[in-house]
Design a protein around this nucleic acid. Sequence first.
DNA 1: AACTTTGGCGTATTGA
DNA 2: TCAATACGCCAA
Length: 727
Amino acid sequence: MSGALCGLWVDEAGTVHVSREVAGGGRESGAEVLRPFAWLGAGEFPAGEGVGIEALAGEGFFARLAHADSLSAFETWLAAVKAAGARGLDVVKPFESQWLLQTRNRLFDRLPFSRLRRCQLDIETGSSDGAFSDAGKADDRVLAIGLRCGGEARFLVLEAETDEAEKTLLERLNAALAELDPDTIEGHNLFKFDLDYLRLRAKRHKVPCAWGRFGQKAKFRNSRLKVAERWVDFPRCDLPGRTVIDTYLLVQLHDITARELTGYGLKEVAVYFGVTNDEDERTYLAGDRIAATFREDREKFLAYLGDDLRETAGVADVLLPTYFEQVKTFPVLLQEATLRGNTGKIDLLFLEHYYHARQACPVPPEVAPFEGGYTRSFHEGVFRHVLHFDVASLYPSLLLLLDRNPRNDALGVFIPLLRKLREYRLRYKQLARSAPTADERAEAQARQASFKILINSFYGYLGFSGARFGDGELAAEVTRRGRELLQKLIDAFAAEDCAILEADTDGIYLSSEKYHAAPGALLEKAARVLPAGIELEHDGSYAAMWCYKAKNYALRDGDRVILKGSALRSRGIEPFLKKLTGRLIRHLLGLDAESPAAWLAELRRAIAAGELPVSELAKTEALSMNPDAYERLMAEGGKPRRAAAEAALQMNPRPRMGERVSYYLVPKSKGQTADWQRARPASAFDRSRPETAYDPAAYLEKLDDWAARYGVFFNLPPPAPAQGELF
DNA sequence: AACTTTGGCGTATTGA
DNA sequence: TCAATACGCCAA
């Protein structure tokens, strides 16, 4: 039996170059064959030399399948198809996925994460004038390239600050990568900084970016990644036969659900993930000190670079295994797994079934808008004896209960696949606890986490117009049953004299003095109203809960506070207001005796006196478009203006789409009254320059608004107390 | 160039 | 000054 696939690349001729693990951990190259294929729609398609077309079973729109003998025959035929104006052709891209699907191969099959051959890469750069690094400038330089492979660091250092030496350095990088032959190249902000910078310097010195396997050069193109509600632009880099992992992007994807990070820089992220625990555990260097340290204190410079590599590895240790495990299930490259949404991956699994069954495929259906989950806030105020119950995996469970495949899924792949993934997940969840070695447990943990994400995305897949086997009516039926079920639970809890506080989609917060110490008894009673296969769980008990509005509340968990909702915990809120709200909540939950009134007064004084740091006042917002694009749009009379975008225009270098910008407001002047007209980057504030001073009136007004909103909770007599209310 | 869903809160901009 | 609306961020 041959070793696990660790690298894969389809060349222009259609040859599939593979790299496999061999005994002892080495890698060996091999070649395989791809028979390129495409699905054909209803139109007329020209014949092609070396291209065969067959009819498929079933009713779907793509009722024929074309296979070509070679990639060149395929490309020639595609050009003819295009010239003939034929439409309705579907080609799986990239070709690496096509081959994996066609042969049912998977990357890293049965390879433990510990045997993945990983390499971290980080560069340090310098500019002669000490300004921001800019690879386009002649006398900017790569000072050093750090590579860390198998835990061992190797430093390639610029020998002299000359073009010759830099050229040599880039050539040494090529040689080092060829020698180390890693499966992955990992770095923090690798796409936007390191690789892009190296590309520009290599171009200047006419050195090929031969960082790929099989002696291949890197390929660059502009790409875009959706991170929750925003898009992030980045210059994508693909290395034939290798995987480029940018932990900067992985961190942002992680933070979609965690939403805890305030910045995505390596140092902060490493502390957040516990890779670096103490400030003195690593060497820190300010950005503008790097070049000087390179010249004056080489040891310190290299220690800094080595720490960056170590931290990058540590962050990837946490974030990469999920994707590594995905690749064992889906016919995608590891890099694709990190840069693609779940729909594309699920679609590929479907297509693999349909391909091998020679079954016609549908076009993605239109999905009409449909109703979602049930959400309601029942009471406002502070309550004690709080319990939280939720339904385990509500939507996947309902899908399995309904046992209904999407309308277009003639082969009936959907439900069996979901069932299989859930069984796998449960098995790995068990193994994550019981496997004999720590490595195996970590492996199982990554696998079960990866499956959990996939399982949960099946419902979203149904409701997405771009999903080939989407079915809006089935998605609507799932949410309808979900609402029905939650209502039943609410009634069951109410029948036990619980005060329902907040319900959202699959969970309920309630107050019950009687059951607070015995949640199991209540659980057992409520669970009776649920059908078999739907499991209710006791998710938590809390001493107190402050209910504000729907999806916005705070819980007291021992001495800690758990905040939920954009009104309370959004990272866009000005820090001084967020902290004020934090104090209010601690007071309301009985953790602080002092009311926030005194702090409110102190803030008023500090703001009026111009003493509050601008970092406390600044609002922060992610840019939804590139500043250049915004500028053009506005020049054409576009709308609306946005304060954060206006602040971004004043920054140098300009931040890019997806990056977060902090801004504050300067006083109103003639014709300059709107926020967007008086927004300034927080970084432009300078205490010693009065013309950069902030507008106290604007911030005092925000305090007034805050007091109007929240004052009722702490310094006005509360309205008639509801059942179970505290204080 | 790429895309999982709906529901909800709060703020700024816009245009009258 | 005020409403409608667009947007950012978050819950699940």
